[in-house]
């Protein structure tokens, strides 16, 4: 079976800063893979390279076998990208924003409204779908943004800290939405620094530190290799950080 994502040897340098170095990740259809790392570990850079927003200095990205560098449009059509810090157009309402992106992704006009209505119902956006995005709360904006990423029914969802800066209720809403997509057989690659989310959602987890992939595998693999009881400890041990009060 062709992996939906094959990222091989991705590196990206910003001057002297090595934001990502020799990253190789594979995601199979229907699989949820989490990128786990502290702030500045290179999660956003890696996801941007995979989504085709940023060109890697070395390495290549294949989406369902399509080379992102050679055929960026065909590859991007298969991706739904969402970042926790992205917004929607302030002076468009949520429905207009969805219509706009639906057209850009080539969703048939006859299907577009049905799909938007379904997403509005699924993500419980009825009360604010006609309001300008600039007037929405953070949670409402994230829901609209998630709807935008799901709209064209992509094979691969790339979500960069989707619950970032959200309250517990809104965050949980997004987590459940991801879980539903997984249940529908969609592959998801998402970054987070919330261990609970990773434990709850991921089939496999990749641990990042200072732009390098330090370990990856199922939750069980990671715990077994680290000899720790939970993901937080396993992560801290892998990146060489001791918990406060722990003996050297």
């Amino acid at each position: 079976m062709t992996p939906i994502l094959q990222a091989e040897g991705l590196s990206r340098y910003f001057g002297a800063v090595h934001a990502a170095e020799d990253i190789t990740i594979t995601v199979q259809p229907g699989e949820v893979v989490g990128l786990l790392g502290p702030n500045g570990a290179g999660k956003t850079t890696i996801l941007r390279m995979i989504a085709g927003i940023l060109a890697p200095d070395t390495g290549r990205v294949l989406i369902d076998g399509i080379d992102m560098a050679a055929e960026p449009l065909a590859a991007k059509e298969k991706i739904g990208f969402h970042s926790g810090d992205t917004q929607l157009y302030q002076r468009l309402n949520a429905r207009e924003a969805l219509e706009y992106f639906g057209r850009l992704y080539g969703v048939e006009e006859s299907q577009l409204q049905k799909r938007i209505d379904a997403l509005i119902a699924q993500l419980e956006m009825e009360s604010f779908a006609e309001r300008p995005c600039g007037t929405l709360s953070s949670g409402q904006k994230q829901r609209a943004n998630i709807a935008r990423a799901f709209l064209h029914e992509p094979d691969l969802l790339i979500l960069d800290e989707p619950t970032n800066a959200l309250d517990v209720v809104s965050g949980q809403f997004i987590v459940e939405a991801i879980r539903r997509e997984k249940a529908d057989g969609r592959a998801v690659l998402f970054s987070t620094h919330i261990m609970g989310e990773a434990e709850y959602l991921c089939d496999r987890i990749a641990l990042l530190h200072k732009g390098r992939l330090v370990d990856q595998g199922t939750l069980g693999d990671l715990l077994e290799r680290s000899g720790c009881a939970n993901l937080t400890d396993a992560f801290l041990k892998t990146i060489g950080v001791r918990r406060t009060g722990e003996a050297a």
């Binding site: 941007r48 991007k76 992205t86 929607l88 157009y89 850009l104 992704y105 080539g106 943004n145």
Partner: peptide
């Protein structure tokens, strides 16, 4: 500033 540029860049448009 509004963070919408990267949303547009990840869409299948040149």
């Amino acid at each position: 500033e509004r963070g919408t540029m990267q949303t547009l860049l990840c869409a299948p448009v040149e």
